[in-house]
């Protein structure tokens, strides 16, 4: 909001204050409950809680690209502003000093985690998926019917996936020949 103060407004205010103060009315603000509301003038972005499949609505308040607060969205049809403890802690997802910022890798038989780059981690995952798929790909079943499937890899999806993400994942997994496609909410 753009508030413009003209000279005329200023004069009006000053005269008003003068009159009030001459009447002996205390113009000092009521003792401050000090802090300014931390979400004042913050940008509001609506989102869906990423945890379970209920899909509660959340408002993310940000200032200058930094998340300053998250809380339930009172206008959301599912949750009406209510959140469980996990959803209520969403602020921590963006602002937590212990949050992991890089992939960690624990080599087979190692007892230590080491930081690796995203490129390295994704390459390794891709290589291992290919290796396993090549090794265990089943062209035909016992009856000689063409099945083209991989039973050595399984996939567990998250409850927080949206329709479009599920669609892409299904395409990808079916293309690999994976048949064990599960969902977190069924475990």
């Amino acid at each position: 909001m753009d508030v413009k103060f003209t000279r005329r407004d200023f004069l009006k205010l000053s005269i008003g204050s003068l009159v009030l103060s001459s009447l002996g009315i205390n113009l000092e603000p009521v003792k401050a409950y000090a802090k300014e509301l931390k979400i004042k003038n913050a940008k509001e972005t609506t989102t869906i809680c990423p945890y379970c499949s209920v899909g509660c609505g959340i408002i993310v308040y940000s200032k200058g690209g930094k998340v300053v607060n998250t809380e339930g969205d009172p206008d959301h049809v599912i949750s009406r502003g209510k959140l469980c403890p996990k959803g209520a802690s969403l602020y921590q997802l963006a602002n937590n000093p212990t949050r992991l910022l890089k992939p960690l890798y624990r080599a087979p038989y190692s007892d230590k985690w080491k930081e690796v780059s995203w490129d390295w981690a994704l390459d390794r995952i891709a290589k291992l998926v290919k290796k396993t798929r090549d090794k265990y790909f089943i062209y035909k079943n016992e009856k000689g019917q063409v099945v083209n499937r991989v039973e050595a890899i399984a996939h567990v999806g998250s409850a927080a996936l949206d329709n479009e993400e599920c669609y892409i994942l299904q395409k990808f997994l079916r293309a690999l020949g994976i048949v064990y496609i599960e969902h977190q909410a069924r475990i």
């Binding site: 409950y33 802090k35 300014e36 509301l37 931390k38 004042k40 809380e71 339930g72 009172p74 949750s79 502003g81 209510k82 959140l83 469980c84 209520a88």
Partner: peptide, 21 residues
């Protein structure tokens, strides 16, 4: 606890009451 007086003065509910499912 200060009953989120900053929120109350701005017409909002305290954080605990708002989230309670």
């Amino acid at each position: 606890c200060y009953m989120c007086i900053d929120r109350v003065k701005a017409g909002l509910e305290p954080a605990c009451a708002k989230t309670c499912p």
